[in-house]
């Protein structure tokens, strides 16, 4: 009985936490003023928000006396793919020159996405 109450309260906390993180992620997407800065809010907060909501679903099932594990699958998938999408979007921002130019790694090297020096890429047409 007590365990059930604890699980229900944990569900409520996870739901509110997930709601907060989700909305902070989207608010950051709207508020921040540089494409690279915008990348930070959704990749972390939104992933964490959905993670909390999935945890809430699992806790709710547990409170009802059932064990549900397949939410873990979605969580793992989201946490594995979030860095990859973030990496791709960062490369789009670098190539589209919508953010500050990154510094060169060292005098004799270029970044992996730049097959040529950045100076040699023509400016994108507006």
């Amino acid at each position: 009985m007590i365990l059930q109450a604890i699980l229900e309260w944990a569900t409520v906390i996870a739901l509110l936490l997930g709601a907060m993180f989700t909305i902070v992620g989207s608010y950051g997407l709207l508020k921040l003023d540089d494409p690279m800065k915008r990348l930070h809010a959704p990749t972390k907060a939104a992933t964490m928000g959905v993670g909390s909501l999935l945890a809430a679903a699992m806790l709710h099932e547990a409170a009802a006396g059932e064990v549900s594990v397949n939410e873990i699958l979605i969580m793992v998938f989201l946490f594995l793919t979030a860095p990859i999408s973030a990496n791709f979007i960062a490369k789009v921002a670098i190539h589209g020159r919508t953010c500050d130019r990154p510094p060169a790694p060292s005098p004799d090297e270029v970044w992996g996405t730049n097959d040529v020096e950045l100076e040699d890429i023509p400016e994108p047409k507006a």
């Binding site: 909305i23 992620g25 997407l29 709207l30 494409p35 909501l53 789009v92 589209g96």
Partner: peptide
């Protein structure tokens, strides 16, 4: 939670519409 996530969806949609770059729209 439902209201918050729906609101978040609308905020993201605003960013999708105003862009300005394609990277922002993908994000």
């Amino acid at each position: 939670a439902l209201v918050a996530v729906a609101l978040a969806q609308v905020l993201a949609m605003v960013r999708l519409v105003i862009g300005p770059s394609s990277g922002d729209r993908i994000l």
